[in-house]
Design a protein around this nucleic acid. Sequence first.
RNA 1: GGGCGAGUGGCGGAAUGGUAUACGCGCACGGCUUAGAACCGUGUUCCGAAAGGAUUGGAGGUUCGAGUCCUCUCUCGCCCACCA
Length: 819
Amino acid sequence: METKYDHKQIENKWKEHWYRDNIYEAVDFSEKPKKYILAELPYPSGPYLHAGHMMRYTVPDVYSRYLRMNGYNVMYPMGWDAFGLPTEGYALKMGKTPQEVTEDLAKGYKQSAQDFGYGIDWNREITTSDPKYYKWTQWLFLKFFENGLAVQEKMPVWWCKELGVLAEEEVLTGKNGEKISERGSYAVERKMFKQWVLKIPEYAEKLIDGLKETDFPDYIKTAQINWIGKSIGAEVDFKSEDNPIRVFTTRIDTIYGASAVIISPEYADLYNFVSEEHRGEVETYVKAAKQKSEMERTTIQKDKSGVFAGTYVLNPFSGEKCPVWVADFVLTTYGTGAIMCVPGHDQRDHEFSVKYGLEIRQVVKPIDGENTDVLKEPFTGYGISINSGDYSGKTSEQVIKEMTDKAEKEGFGKFKINYKLRDWVFSRQRYWGEPIPVVYRQDGTLEAVVDTKNVQEVQEKLPVELPYTKDYAPSENGRAPLERLVDWVQTTDKNGNPAKRETETMPTWAGSSWYYLRYCDPKNENAFADPEILKYWLPVDKYFGDGGHTTAHLLYSRFWHKFFYDLGLVPTSEPYKWRMTGGLLLGADGQKMSKSRGNVIDPKELVDYFGADACRLYLCFIGPYDETYPWDDHGVKATKRFIDNLFLLKEKVSSEVSAGLELEKDYNLMVKKVTEMCEDLKMNTCVSEFMIFANAAKKASSINIEQWKGYIKLLAPFIPFVAEELWHEINNLTGWDKKNSVHLQEWPKFDASKLTENTLTIPVQINGKVRAEIELDRGADEQSVENLVRNNSDVIKSLDGRQIKKLIYVKDKIVSLVV
RNA sequence: GGGCGAGUGGCGGAAUGGUAUACGCGCACGGCUUAGAACCGUGUUCCGAAAGGAUUGGAGGUUCGAGUCCUCUCUCGCCCACCA
């Protein structure tokens, strides 16, 4: 295509100046007000940033450039989340070590971010796999350890032989309901393993409460609240000759309707509740359930199954005998692993009871007295208790309180809050991650490598460096690869006795849980960050990231932050003030980009061919940030054409006083709108405004030089290279001086007096339909407008003799007639 | 099954309760070209020759006035999924 400028030459020239002089520097303690704009850091997994990254980082870059020109001290940092599976996977594929590829990939990513002209302060670049960085990841981990929030627990975890242990969040449900790994789509199964876990449920309440302090959009708040899954209820014992069975319920008030107590197949002392005669049957069932759990237990089974255990327990309120059943729809990992089955008032219990012929009894009736048939359909709402002894006639809320109190007083139960949020499995049987800085003493007990408060010890012994090895591939047996480095594993404890190092490593999430803190003070060797500097920069003002991270990364890092806040390590109780989730960029065919489909967009090719500015402008123009779009070559061509036209418009610029008069309104309106839209992050409509002005300017006889300068400044955040070029040209700046960069200039202002005209045309509606237009003076009074309307020929024609019953005049906007 | 979000031209999309379809793509016609590409100009929601009429997934409602607010309903997307 024909082009009016040599984008390569322009880009190379300005890139060189900008980054050498670090014009996008974020200054600690600057007098200017600060803005911390953050976009999730990428994990290096290819030689160049991919198209999705461009989509993720361009709008935040435009926004931070806008803020910088508006007088803010802006930090828009970038780093590389190099530890973890993506980079390790890439290294395995390339037959190199992760260390080697990380260095190359980080270089390539940095280069591509600069090719795109991102306004990043590169003095703050970080890499999570850099020992200087993960020294502090380890130190922070030890804070959790010292405070009992990082512990080892034997627990069922997702496991697959390709990847080892996976976190709940790394497992997805496949097309047929089978569980697969997020990465690689391998079949996963449940296994019992001793695992490091972070006790995030201890912060469940604070994580819910803290949302109030943020300006997150509601859908993100709700997603987090739902994920945490708070349930208020009670635990109650059903007595037996042996130990009682304790159940968790949110509806203790329905206990008179309990037809059974159901325990999960993995229930700890299950066989205490199985009679001799039912033992065989139960064993078969438990075995089958286990099989299922190892294969595809979670295949969506609306179909419930279970077996009678042959024994009975006593309902603590009614004193009735209650049969004990075993069923795999009851989860071991939630509540107590046992439930009371109330078929009249719970959907699942209803299905189960219908299938096995258990008694269905109504113990709550709707408050409005409507008839319900619990035999057909359970009634799950609150209402009035019936058939419930002394409790009958009282409201559900009342009964819940009274029953819980009684259970507590008499010692057979208690008030209880449960959360769906589980312990965060924090160890991985992989090589490429932060070594967990703990040793096993000879007696098998654990010891932290250092006392985090002992400054000298920290400097001497952290980080526990990940030993270099070419033999880093995951083990067939799922054991940690570091176990194979026998010499490394051997160490000593604090007392000089032989000890063994922990060989498991932290998950990818570790480094990214606190990276936004490190950006504030990235080179600090004595602390993860200086408290005073953190106080200056925190919280993050705007956080842009991936939709998939709403319940994983975003929750994790809030958890870390809140814990650090409790320790007095960070100055704010929340890390992020505001969050926006970005959409995806699809291939031109509307499908997710993938090599197998052959629809992958290569940003390097695009930048080479169209230039960075055209690509940036297209990504802004394509639509709102949080939506998903297919790539469209025609779209970039259009933005490229727009930039080309700037080089034609340039010829019309004049410094004559009379120049550009006809554009005054267009220009001022554009400044006003673009300013407001940038504030609202509506970059797509900003581009429309630029085009509208260009269209008007094309028709105008001349453009005033001041208008042109303002236009270039408005364009600067969007097309930084061309803007810099045009700025230097119009100002006759021949050499480079940082302070003359367009990106450090002040944002244009608009003249409100140029926006309004004295006469305007407004529509006249008759019964809701526009029938005429009238011309009037701005601010005209109702009487004069009515005269205009009544004498308007179109109105007279449309009225066709009918009388005006009512006239509504919205000043300077519209006239509405009712006839 | 639950939660959240969204439905506007052939397409991406725009619209503080106040002239729906801005801006761009595509398309059509014209110009420039030996020709094509590129570029430039004009037009382009639909029906209709026009006058006019219809139109924001569908059905109701509130209002002088609804894409926007309320109720019901359909479809799609994302997240979660037996959490007692």
